[in-house]
Amino acid sequence: MADKLVTNARDLTNSEYFYGHRACAGCGGSLALRLAMKVLGPRTFVAIPANCMSAVSFLHPQISFSTNSMISPFAATGAVLSGIEAGARALGMKDYHVVGFAGDGGTADIGIQALSGAIDRGDRIIYVCYDNEAYMNTGIQKSGLTPYGSSTTTSPAGRNLPGATRMKKNMFEIVAAHDIAYAATASIGYPEDYLRKISKAAQCASTSYIHVLAPCSTGWGFPIEKTVEMGKEAVDCGLWYLAEFENGEFRLNRKPREFSSLEDYLKKQARFRHLTDKDMDVIKGNRDRKWKKIQDQWTV
């Protein structure tokens, strides 16, 4: 299918394979799925565990995927993908992709062992984690990828708590620690970079993992038209990064010359509006530590 890498809108097919879904207006997750499906094409098997995207696209009789798709058990995305791949191989199928779209909770918390097993087996599957930084589908509960200071229904900000008290799990590095063939982080704020990474994963002969930041206007609390902008600002202010892991090496894809304002990015979102200067310092400290490690240990 994709022999050369897809890197811009002009290379992208006009056909839609994820259409007519009931996601909120301006949903970042649905944009991540839509673009990935356009790169992967019509011969793609999709498995989705419980998350917003399965809730909005399998509303019988309204089915949004025009390719084969199914809902997997919450914890079993990786295992179901392996099963689909084994089935397709046994049938002697050629020229197909097997992709899973799990949310941040479905990847970093509930689905992590099935993902780990799938990477260990080295099956030719693509695992996409669309990260909106909380369990949005069930009403915004904290997940392992919810950042420090984020107010959710299970980490409410108030006198005793600044919101979530832990930083995001290093999911990208956890996956890379398996010595996976290809892993990458992306953001829908940089869609061209994301397209390139999906098409790279499509060409990978073994397991590949893409972690894409997908802002959620409902859960984060920002105006719906700014979804893509928020995804871009997260990268520009240094709270998210665009990187790849290949042949055992980490490589940073985008190095901001200087970070844009962290306060600006955080204060635009209702989930961070309560943050004090002290909380800002904690977030800034964590960001700077992370970037020092990136500068020292990765190819930048």
Binding site: N14, L31, K38, T227
Partner: peptide, 30 residues
């Protein structure tokens, strides 16, 4: 590229919007 619902069609001479499925989020305009 950035429409979350994929309602902007590029197959014709000019871009067209499928108003049957546009939710009016305004990402395109922004």
């Amino acid at each position: 590229l950035v429409c979350p619902d994929g309602v902007i069609d590029k197959s014709g001479e000019k871009l067209e919007i499928d108003y049957d499925f546009c939710k009016g989020c305004g990402v395109c305009a922004y």
